[in-house]
Simulated assay, not measured.
Amino acid sequence: MKIDGGCHCGAITYEAEVDPENTGICHCIDCQQLTGTAFRVTVGAPEGQYRITKGAPKVYIKTGSSGAKRAQGFCGECGSHLYATSVGDGPKVYGIRVGTARQREQLVPRRQSWHRSALPWLPEFPGMATKEEQ
């Protein structure tokens, strides 16, 4: 499925080819802190299927508890988070932030990860594949 989108202020836009079945929710503490809310919804796009069409994101490198580094791409003007991807050599998958896609209504989460960090006041999502960690 082809999607396109961008940041809140319009300084950065992108297009991507994604499989909507790979849309997921992450409840990890990093995602909670980086979004300022309870969880993050992401859909993956292989490196060759994701392209910035306008602007240039700022990148923040976050080191997780496992020691793995993740590049967090965001707009330096409005602060919208656009994606996260691995750092270093090897194939990359861009975890596109679903809220930035114009087609967000069609990107329904199918799985959730880091469920052990889910906030206790959230409702359960019945029928969704769930992992307690990643």
Rank of each mutant, 00 (worst) to 15 (best):
V87M: 03
Q32N: 07
T35E: 01
P46M: 13
T63E: 14
D19A: 11
D30W: 15
P46G: 09
I29P: 00
D4E: 15
E132A: 09
R40N: 08
G48K: 15
H81K: 08
W114I: 08
A68F: 12
Q106C: 00
Q112S: 09
S66N: 10
R70I: 08
T23Y: 04
G90Y: 12
T35Q: 10
A16Q: 14
R102Y: 07
T37P: 03
Q103I: 05
T37A: 12
L34R: 12
K92S: 08
W121V: 11
V18D: 03
T35L: 00
P120G: 09
V18W: 08
K69G: 00
P20E: 04
E132I: 05
C78P: 01
T37M: 08
K2V: 02
V59P: 00
A11R: 11
V43E: 00
K2F: 11
K2N: 14
R116L: 05
Q33R: 15
T13W: 05
A45C: 06
E15T: 04
E132G: 06
N22S: 09
P126A: 08
G24T: 03
G88Q: 07
Q49K: 15
G36T: 14
Q134Y: 14
P91D: 14
C9E: 09
P120F: 01
G67M: 10
S117M: 14
G99K: 12
I12H: 03
V108A: 04
C9R: 07
S86D: 11
A56N: 12
M128V: 15
V108H: 07
A56Q: 15
E77A: 04
A71W: 01
V93T: 15
E133H: 13
F74M: 07
K58Q: 12
P126G: 12
G44M: 14
C75K: 03
L119W: 11
A101K: 06
A45K: 15
S113Q: 12
K54G: 07
R102E: 05
G88V: 01
A118P: 04
Q72E: 00
M128Q: 13
G95M: 09
I96D: 04
G90K: 11
G127I: 08
K54A: 12
T13F: 04
A84T: 13
E21W: 05
G99L: 10
L119V: 15
A129N: 09
I96W: 06
G99H: 05
F125W: 12
W121P: 08
R40G: 07
W114E: 13
